[in-house]
Each structure stands twice: as C-alpha cells, then as structure tokens.
Design a protein around this nucleic acid. Structure first.
Lengths: 207, 207
DNA sequence: GGCCTAATTCAACATGTGTTGAGCGCAGGA
DNA sequence: TCCTGCGCTCAACACATGTTGAATTAGGCC
C-alpha cells in the first residue's frame, strides 16, 4: 500500500480549524478526479478520496453534500467547451474534417491524460445517468450537430453513431485499457490512420 | 392453492432438499450472466443473483465457491471459440476480409445479445484481470494473429490496435451504451458501413 | 483582546456486502 | 423400509461503506 498522497508517518492531525489557507475543497476535487478515474464511481470510496486529499472523509459531505455531488462536480462537468470546439472544427476545409476531429479529440483529452473520459467509462454501470450523458454528449451534442449540418437524408443519425463508435473505441484503447502502441503513439500518427475513417463516415458512401 | 383461511402470500420455502430435479447450478449461471451484464462485477450482488435464480445466496458458495469464481465461470469464459472463427475468417477472399470480420463479430455476439461483452466492459474497473483479458483477447489472440499473417513490418501492432479500437467502439455503442440506431441496425447495414474501415486498417495505407 | 462563525476531526450509526456453520428434509440405494 | 448423503434454507458474523452530530480549534471582525 502507500500509494496515496500522504507522506509523513505521523501527520499529527489535531481537531478544529487547520492553520494556513489550506484549500480543502480544491484538494478534494483533485483527489476525487484521480480516484474516480482509477476505480470508477463504485470502486472509489469516500474514505480513499479523503485520504488522498489528506483530510477527513466528513469533508466530502461538508463541501459537496455527498459522494454523488462530488462525482458530478469533479467528473461530470467537462474540462473544455464542446460547442466552441465544434465551431472551430467546422471552420476549416471540409475535405479533411475527419483529421481535424481526431486531432481536436486527442489533444483535448491528452491534456488531462484522459482522466475524465476514463472516469466516465468506468462508471457507466453504476450510474445510468452516466450512460445517458455519454450518449447525449457524443451523438446529439457533438457528432450529431456536425453530421446534420451536412446531411438531411435519414443517414445522419447512423453516420453520427459510426463516428461515435470509432471515437469511443479510440478513447477506450488509449485512455481506459491502455493498449500498446495506441496509448503511446503521437497524435499525428493516429490522425493519419483514423482521420480517413471519420471522413468517410461523415461524407463518404456507407451503404 | 390456498383455499383455507390462512393465506400465505409467500412461496413458503421450506428447508431441506427441494423436490423435483431443479438444476440450481444452471439457474445460478443464467442469473449471474444477466445480473453481471446489467450491473458489472461490483454492482452485481450475490443476493440479487440468488433472488433472480430463486434460491438462497449461500448456494453461490456451495456450487461455485464464491462470487469471484461464479464470475469467472459465467462471464470470463467465452460462448464461442475464437481460434476456430479466426481460421474460418482467414479462408475466404482477402479483399473483403474486413466485412467478414464485422459479420462474424456481430452475429456471434448478437446470438447472446452481447451479454458477455457488456459484462466484461462493465467490469474493467473492478478487475484489473478483466482489462488484461480484454487486451490479450483483442490484440494478441484475435486481430494480432490476423494482421501479423499479412504484415511483417513494424505496422502490425498498430494495425491490430486500430482494428481493436473500431471493434470495441462498435461493441460499446451496440451492446453497452445502446445507441440508436447502432443497437437496432441489422448486421448487413453495419457490415457495409464499417467493413471498409477494417479492410483499410488491415491492408490499406495508414500513414 | 474577545467573541462568533466557519472549518475540521472523531466516533458512531445504519445499512449492505460476501461468507460461514448449523441444521433440516428429500432422494436414492441397501 | 431404513439410512446415509447431498441439496438447501436460515441466521449470523465480520467487515466496509456513506453519512451524521458533537466536540474542538483557528480565523476574522468589532
């Protein structure tokens, strides 16, 4: 054991307010993201999160109101703005839209090591809410908007599903299951390999 | 039954051996697969499985030795033989290898509604063992064998990763998160849409 | 400097978990 | 028919979880 943040053998915790401007709330958020990422919602315990943050488990209830609310605040709110990214993606050349999507996807998740993505995937079984969020996010909020901007026949939803399947699969092997070399390959390698797939799902023949 | 005054709503379980040849072991296996599929390893409780099977929770220990062993027997052993399927796949025309892979993948998992696939995915966080099994299965045991039979440069592993990412993503949207229309589309629609992707990952240019 | 409020720890509770041992009763052979 | 053994239920245990209330201390305002 001893894989948590606490260092000294005897931290000498006293009761009452701690001296210094220790930002307990922020520490809990950081620790929660780490533990939820590794273990999912069920596997992560309030006690483990508090230990990682170096505070008492009761602080979770004091600052957030409970485990569920902490999960929502730490994991369920994305570290970037999808709408702004979509707008940016749609600006450039539509012949290489697929490559831009992969590049944006990877650089944004890589920036935080895919933590939130992994946490969401590892929690799909616990919270039905999470599965719905995943579906909503990928199909309607992201790729659906992109696809429906270029197809008005019945194929839009299927195309969005296809794109989502490849992106989720990419996230699974890179951030969750950590396949090799997918988890270590540089972004442009994957852009070159998978970009054309996305491009065909978006604009090519699929039947 | 129950034409006397005292009406017992309960099934009136008595102790001792139950009459009739009730195959408790098989009932537990079926129930376990269902519950593990819905809730993953952690979310599934021994009591829930036993209730579903209509028997006492202690039967899990009596017949399997514990929850872990039941999970291994119910989920971790595949309902089909991958090696035989690979041999079959490699027989036909290599120009449409991708389509055959998708078709085989879907028809075999569809046959049991993707239950085992969903159960494994929903348990990756709980059992590190499961993540390893997933990696081993997809990369080395399945697609690695296919790819390394046609490439001897350094691209074989990356190609296998790419194929695995698309297949896992497909399984995610069809069996786990149950996107629409991916979860309801017929097999040939998906074969036509995704087959070329796999084909390019196997034999096409990826750099 | 003294007081009030907020921040923190501690101990405890209620609940749900996997597992165990004891005892009961039907099945099948003698 | 009796007897042994296996299938089965029941009650309980030991433990881990999320959450709560009381107790305690420090910071900030007058």
């Amino acid at each position: 054991m001893g894989h948590d943040g606490t260092v000294t053998a005897e931290p000498e915790r006293r009761r009452g307010r701690r001296p210094g401007g220790a930002d307990t709330r922020a520490a809990l958020l950081t620790a929660a993201r780490a533990v939820f990422t590794e273990s999912g919602y069920d596997g992560a315990t309030v006690r483990a999160i508090a230990r990682r943050a170096g505070v008492d488990p009761a602080m979770v209830n004091h600052w957030f109101g409970g485990k569920e609310a902490l999960f929502a605040e730490a994991v369920l709110h994305l570290p970037f703005n999808p709408k702004a990214l979509i707008a940016e993606i749609l600006k450039g050349d539509r012949e290489v839209l697929g490559e831009r999507i992969i590049r944006t996807f990877l650089t944004n998740w890589d920036a935080q090591d895919g933590g939130v993505f992994a946490a969401m995937i590892r929690s799909v079984s616990a919270h039905e809410q999470v599965a719905n969020a995943l579906r909503e996010f990928f199909v309607h909020q992201v790729f659906g908007q992109i696809v429906s901007a270029m197809h008005d026949d019945g194929s839009a939803l299927l195309r969005a599903n296809l794109v989502a399947s490849q992106m989720i699969g990419l996230g699974m092997v890179r951030y969750v299951a950590r396949f090799d070399p997918a988890s270590t390959a540089d972004v442009e390698t994957l852009v070159a390999a998978i970009g054309p797939t996305i491009q065909r799902y978006l604009t090519g023949p699929i039947g």
